[in-house]
Design a protein around this nucleic acid. Structure first.
Length: 354
DNA sequence: AACTCGGGGCG
DNA sequence: CGCCCAGAGTT
């Protein structure tokens, strides 16, 4: 069956209008007060949506407030140094979000007279603005009736409409976009989309949903069948690879510490770290052309990413002779170190640097 | 369609 | 420990 026909069959006999009204009424009553809900400024909505990708609301709040203080307008962000933007993003993860956001904001300044575009074609062309974010900005900032399908929406609707497609597949998101298109409110698409997400965050949670408190319980097919705990269906992912490194705290005679900037692409791109070499490439007493006196291991740090695991041995060393021959590596005073954006894995080393 | 890309909190 | 989170870009 074609996706379009499947969507038609799923929404057949579903009381969309009653569902809409209950959902929107509940959202207006019960929504959390959040900093990006103070107004409809497209720039603020945009920043919040990027930060919220794969990140919980409670985590985002302090980052959002500090980010807006630092970069109050789109022009401020466009004019900022990338390093300062990454510093404001430090600890939030998925750092390409920050770099793509700045790229996109600069594009808006140069090509759209600093006004966030309000059409699907224009806004979806911006770096970092995918199917979800485009729908979120258009519906929340511009009141357009377009779907904004995230994990919450797929979970909520899979239960309400009894959909057992695997939500780990990208193609499934398109089915839910069709389902939202057939149910969304044209009067208040913003409250409808946010209501679905808010419901997923507060009531229709992944584990043990609060069905007895649900404002749309009477419309929930999964609840009536008693299968809400079995939905959504999601295939599991594979286990992570383990990578072993030795990380150095190298101090010179002036009390400065050696740090290096990671490559422009890939994992933790353009963030800084203490020099780190694969365990099998360690050369005792030598690093990046420097001759060192090794003072032994300080700690073992295990850091887990979504797709891999780092096991780092942290060693302390002092420079005996030589010059740094490695690209993007430099000695920095301990005071200035706080200006450099570090991933959390290496922030764990800061206490040993003093 | 599968992989990459962070980090935290929860059971 | 595994799972999930207001996903997007790359291959």
């Amino acid at each position: 069956m074609k996706r379009n026909e499947l969507a038609d069959e799923i929404v057949k006999d579903f009381p969309a209008e009653d569902f809409r009204e209950s959902l929107i009424r509940w959202f207006k009553q019960e929504q959390r007060t959040l900093p990006w809900r103070e107004n409809q400024d497209p720039y603020r909505i945009w920043v919040s949506e990027i930060m919220l990708q794969q990140t919980k609301v409670e985590t985002v709040i302090p980052y959002f407030e500090q980010f807006i203080r630092k970069f109050p307008t789109l022009e401020d962000l466009a004019a900022a140094d990338e390093q300062d933007v990454l510093k404001a993003w430090e600890g939030l993860g998925y750092y390409s979000r920050a770099r793509n956001l700045q790229t996109a904001v600069r594009e808006v300044v140069s090509s759209y007279n600093a006004a966030v575009p309000d059409t699907v074609e224009e806004i979806s062309s911006l770096k970092g603005v995918g199917p979800y974010t485009q729908g979120a900005i258009l519906s929340i900032a511009y009141d357009q009736p377009v779907p904004a399908v995230d994990g919450n929406v797929m979970r909520v609707l899979s239960r309400i409409l009894l959909v057992d497609e695997d939500i780990a597949k990208q193609s499934t998101r398109k089915l839910f976009e069709l389902l939202v298109s057939r149910t969304i409110s044209t009067d208040d698409p913003s409250s409808f989309n946010q209501g679905l997400m808010e419901l997923g965050a507060i009531v229709c949670t992944p584990k043990s949903p609060s069905c007895l408190l649900c404002p749309v319980q009477e419309y929930c097919r999964a609840f009536h069948e008693g299968v809400e705990a079995e939905l959504p269906v999601k295939s599991s992912k594979k286990t992570q690879k383990v990578l072993r490194y030795r990380t150095y705290i190298v101090e010179n005679e002036r009390g400065e510490v050696l740090v290096e900037k990671r490559p422009e692409e890939g994992l933790l791109a353009n963030l800084w770290q203490y020099p780190m070499v694969k365990e099998e490439e360690v050369q005792e007493g030598s690093l990046y052309g420097l001759e060192m006196e090794e003072k032994g291991m300080v700690d073992r740090i295990k850091h887990t990413f979504s797709h891999l695991i780092w096991e780092m041995e942290v060693h302390r060393a002092f420079v005996l002779s030589g010059d740094v021959q490695k690209e993007r590596a430099e000695f920095v005073s301990k005071e200035l170190l706080t200006d450099y954006p570090f991933p959390v894995s290496h922030q764990k080393i800061h206490p040993y640097v003093g």
